[in-house]
Design a protein around this nucleic acid. Structure first.
Lengths: 231, 231
DNA sequence: TTTATCTGTTAATGATTGTTAAAACAATAA
DNA sequence: TTATTGTTTTAACAATCATTAACAGATAAA
């Protein structure tokens, strides 16, 4: 299983500092997109997927707080770290209220930056990928046994059914990207694999239809979401 | 529905500072357990459930880093904030490596402490806890569900419809900038995306026409406003 | 007013997804 | 080996979705 690099959106208007930070982060194995002002920062954010944002507070065109506010409208959970020259308390407090996860006061050393990035990301860990038992509404799904239980009724699943359901469970209430699932289960994202996946979605929907609070929702052009309504 | 108080484990060997912080946090509605050294801190942690830990670094018997390490062995996710008199970078870095979520240098003001506690706790919220649900006049909109309910009638929405309605809801009674929405949803602000958006506005207006107090108003050259008349 | 631009709406088009059934494939027992 | 059974893929068709086209109406600038 391949682990993809952490994608960092870096917005810093000071060219030399920005380049330096970018090179440092690249050297540390991150994927970095550097933007020189707030306007470009949000543009870039809207075009690609990122795992973490580092925003300078004072930038031309659009300041870091505004960018953070816009990012939060679209994505409530992506970690945001502010960079600020001031260490003014008001600034810090405003930053947190705008949805920051952390902030760093310039000048900072690179080690500290790294360690704060790690701390902020440690909490974002998605559901345990290694788990093999899942509660899905009133259903209980055991991946290893390939079984799906509902009110004492035990339904045996095929390998592909179980694999797909597991991926959906790991991403419960969140989008499971179609191509990601295809590569993970079918090891190719060809047209026919995709159609095959659709067939399996239909099968899983039939298995899960007894509990109306459980739905597999299609996100057009993206993938599927196993949505489980809270009580 | 009663919301239980946030339970804070506070470890601080300076009596006067400890008492002061405890009283402040109590006044702010937290449940606080104050420990005067590291040994007692871990003892207390192992006896009760907590939501957040604030650990002074320098304490007799057992320093804050050691306590954090012990806590992390038992609980990987509880937020930990360190208090330290030093602002030495090495200390900060060691703290994070021991599993800290944040770090505050003495002297600090109470506002900053609060805001950091909130930031750190917001981070650990599981992704499905914060429901993307909105009340729009007599309508109830569930984003993750892609459904719009009106008087028991449930209307399924498409992905794009739901995304646009969500942005309108987030900016309820305020202008949703056209280009912002285009970038956020269509990832480009081209002419055709813009026309597509207009088509979706028409669709949403049809869905929302049952409640006359709910309107999507065009702000010429700017964008759209989801206007909900107050009672 | 005239003109260019922006918005409202409906319908047509192509792409994606939903579903069922048949075909192909794989594993196992006779 | 062949028959049997279960699984997965492919085919076929239906339904839905997002974009584009087309035209009408509204708005702001000249």
């Amino acid at each position: 299983m391949e682990t993809t690099k952490t994608r960092v959106l870096l917005a810093e208007d000071d060219d030399s500092l920005g380049m330096l930070m970018k090179d440092f982060l690249l050297a540390k194995g991150f994927e970095v997109e550097l933007c020189v002002n707030g306007k470009k920062a949000f543009d870039t954010f809207s075009k690609k997927d990122f795992d973490l944002c580092i925003l300078d507070v004072m930038m031309p065109e659009k300041d870091g707080f505004t960018v953070a506010k816009e990012i939060r409208m679209v994505n409530k959970h992506i970690p945001i770290i502010f960079l600020t020259a001031k260490s003014m308390k008001e600034d810090i407090i405003e930053g947190f209220n705008k949805g920051a996860d952390d902030y760093i006061t310039k000048p900072f050393n690179t080690e500290e930056l790294l360690v704060r990035m790690q701390a902020v990301m440690r909490r974002i860990q998605p559901a345990n990928k290694d788990a093999d038992e899942f509660q899905v509404g009133l259903y209980h799904f055991n991946y290893k046994n390939q079984s799906l239980e509902f009110k004492g009724n035990n339904q045996k699943l095929t390998t592909k059914e179980a694999e797909l359901l597991k991926l959906l469970c790991v991403n419960q209430n969140d989008v499971l990207d179609r191509n990601f699932a295809l590569k993970a289960i079918w090891h190719t994202d060809s047209y026919f694999s995709s159609r095959s996946m659709d067939v399996y979605v239909t099968k899983l929907r039939k298995f899960l239809k007894e509990d109306p609070k459980v739905q597999i929702i299609n996100i057009h052009g993206k993938g599927f979401k196993l949505y489980v309504e809270k009580v």
